[in-house]
């Protein structure tokens, strides 16, 4: 049983006379607990695929079924709630809320899930400890390094207990040490908690750590290799 199932996904951008096929008949299945990298050169459709799987964008045709729910049939409001409760996001630019502390950033997602205050605080602290930031919980994003911010983002993504985490080029803005540290954390979480991770990346260091690598080129799957 796959947690992510896409069926003949196509995404076409129509800019007047020119039609750009960002995705062309992409069908994939990702099982729970996978640590998958979607790779390919710029413009190959990695981010588009991730956006569509995350319900941020809609396909021109095809179906996406997440844990049994066809998300192409959900309304905007239902999709937002679905994302909140099922999908964790890690972005290239961390995208933390600048005016909130690390703990508040992690708590924020649980606030939207209507967790009570005490539970939120405990869980946020635990999540930050699990990414090695137990001593930085009251710092704001501007007081943290890029690597630390990305670790907060991972903690935020996991705080709500999602079915899987989508990470769009998570190491693109990080130095080697931070990249290595982040990958260790994500690999540990994957191994210990069974959290499913799907990355889009062209960072060889991430590709090397992935257990499954799906290569895209011109919107099509070029290869799908499990190690």
């Amino acid at each position: 049983m796959s947690i992510i199932h896409t069926e003949n996904l196509t995404k076409t951008y129509d800019s007047g006379a020119v039609k750009v096929h960002a995705l062309n008949d992409v069908s994939i299945d990702i099982a729970p607990g996978e640590f998958t990298a979607i790779v390919g050169p710029s413009g190959s459709g990695k981010t588009t695929l991730l956006n569509i799987i995350g319900g941020l964008d809609t396909p021109s045709s095809g179906r996406i079924v997440i844990d049994g729910t066809d998300i192409t049939r959900l309304s905007d409001g239902q999709m937002i709630d679905f994302r909140l409760n099922n999908i964790g996001f890690v972005f290239q630019s961390y995208n933390l809320i600048p005016v909130l502390t690390a703990r508040e950033n992690v708590e924020f997602i649980m606030l939207m899930q209507k967790w009570d205050k005490k539970k939120r605080e405990t869980r946020a602290t635990e999540m930050l400890q699990s990414v090695g930031l137990g001593d930085q919980i009251d710092r704001r994003p501007s007081q943290l390094s890029g690597g630390q911010q990305q670790r907060v983002a991972v903690a935020r993504a996991l705080a709500s207990g999602p079915k899987f985490v989508l990470a769009d080029e998570p190491t693109a803005n990080l130095d080697s040490a931070s990249t290595s540290n982040l990958l260790d954390i994500m690999a540990n979480l994957n191994a210990q908690l069974g959290t499913t991770f799907v990355f889009s990346t062209h960072d060889q260091r991430v590709i090397d750590r992935a257990r499954r690598v799906i290569t895209l080129e011109d919107g099509k799957i070029l290869s799908d290799e499990t190690r």
Partner: peptide, 13 residues
């Protein structure tokens, strides 16, 4: 940009 992020992570409009 920030509003886009908030919608992405599941904050209702």
């Amino acid at each position: 940009y920030e509003f886009g992020v908030l919608v992405s992570i599941g904050m209702r409009r």
